[in-house]
């Protein structure tokens, strides 16, 4: 397999949740994820950011096949997931997930080691070996097995539980770990410990991470590339440095400028954008961001932008960056000149 083949390739991933018809609400679907395309290279960390309702968590659950997509496919190492080449069970051994809520993601009736050992047993490892692996992993995530293996989730702190969840995800020796807001519920000092742990484990086990978070500081710290989502669609995708230095999409830019300042003498003077994200039940026509965008023109409400490459690694879905679109503030020529 050539080095350029992505480890994980997501094509046209779409999830529409049907809505029960009710008075005053005829339209029948929530467009949670709409035609999302991206790929993840071996060994990288892809950060996915966006606000509530942007579809980042639904994307994670679709990737894990915990819910069935309306359309689209996931390709792992060139094999379509769920096909004869790559049955679901085998895919699940390769791709694992850590959830946000450390308490709800552990069975309260099982000891820590039983929770971790469950996965390997499903895949045919004997109970004895699975328990041994669980204890080894506990020490890898910084929990002394002698003290923690026999404990129950409610006897652990939030940070310790999240370490157990990480160990559980690693028990199947996966290649990819999806971290869905995995550190968001933790206190800052604990968050730092868990982030360090994630970095260590990534190196030790050659892992590839999909890091989903609303905390831009953390995403910036841990990700190699960042994908910004808005109302079920990808609006921008670039290397972390490029996107934090100069985000091209007006939404991505506004999102990044919304980070509170850490300098008391350089407080934010005015909100970058006003209003709340609209409801994904009836997303705006054309570009979904046009209702809140300061650069919106009439063309934006009628024409949906395509994800367009502006250089090798930077892609953006905005009409200002699309060729042959009559947007008065088109940036296409500016980019050409710069190139």
């Amino acid at each position: 397999m050539s080095a350029a083949t992505p480890l994980l390739d997501v094509r046209g991933l779409t999830k529409h949740f049907p809505l029960k018809a009710s008075p005053g609400n005829k339209s029948g679907v929530v467009r949670a994820v709409d035609d999302v395309n991206f790929s993840v290279m071996r060994g990288e960390t892809l950060g996915i950011v966006g606000e509530s309702g942007c579809g980042k968590s639904t994307t994670a659950r679709l990737l894990m096949h915990l819910i069935n997509p309306t359309a689209g496919e996931v390709i792992f190492e060139g094999k379509v997931v769920g096909s004869r080449d790559l049955p679901m069970k085998e895919f699940h051994r390769q791709v694992q997930m850590v959830f946000q809520d450390s308490y709800s993601s552990l069975n309260p009736r099982l000891t820590v080691e039983a929770s971790i050992a469950f996965g390997p047993q499903v895949h045919g490892v004997s109970e004895k070996d699975a328990v041994k692996r669980a204890r080894d992993l506990l020490s890898r995530v910084g929990l002394e097995p002698a003290r923690f293996a026999g404990r129950y989730p409610h006897e652990l702190s939030g940070g310790q539980r999240q370490r157990v969840n990480i160990a559980r995800a690693l028990a199947l020796e996966p290649r990819v770990v999806i971290l869905d807001e995995a550190v968001s519920a933790l206190d800052k000092s604990v968050e730092a410990q868990v982030l360090n742990l994630l970095l260590d484990l990534k190196q030790a086990f050659n892992l590839t991470y999909l890091f989903i978070s609303h905390d831009l500081n953390v995403v910036r710290y841990i990700s190699d590339r960042v994908m910004v989502m808005y109302l079920g669609q990808v609006v921008e995708m670039a290397s972390t440095d490029a996107i934090f230095a100069s985000a091209k999409h007006p939404y991505a830019d506004a999102l990044l400028s919304s980070m509170p300042s850490m300098d008391p003498d350089q407080r934010t003077e005015a909100p970058p954008i006003s209003g709340d994200p609209p409801n994904p039940i009836n997303p705006p026509s054309g570009c979904r961001f046009h209702t809140r965008c300061t650069f919106a023109e009439s063309v934006c409400s009628s024409r949906a932008p395509q994800l367009t490459s502006i250089d090798d690694t930077h892609r953006v879905a905005c009409l200002m960056y699309e060729a042959n679109v009559a947007h008065p503030r088109s940036r296409v020529n500016v980019l050409k000149v710069a190139a």
Binding site: R61, N107, F118, N165
Partner: peptide, 25 residues
């Protein structure tokens, strides 16, 4: 609950999940 989701994500079938994660709860 997320722990049942996690068990599904590990590739376990319904029978194994019910036996280990559902019954006890």
């Amino acid at each position: 609950r997320d722990y049942v989701e996690a068990a599904r994500a590990s590739g376990a079938n319904a029978f194994a999940i019910i036996r280990t994660h559902v019954l006890g709860n």
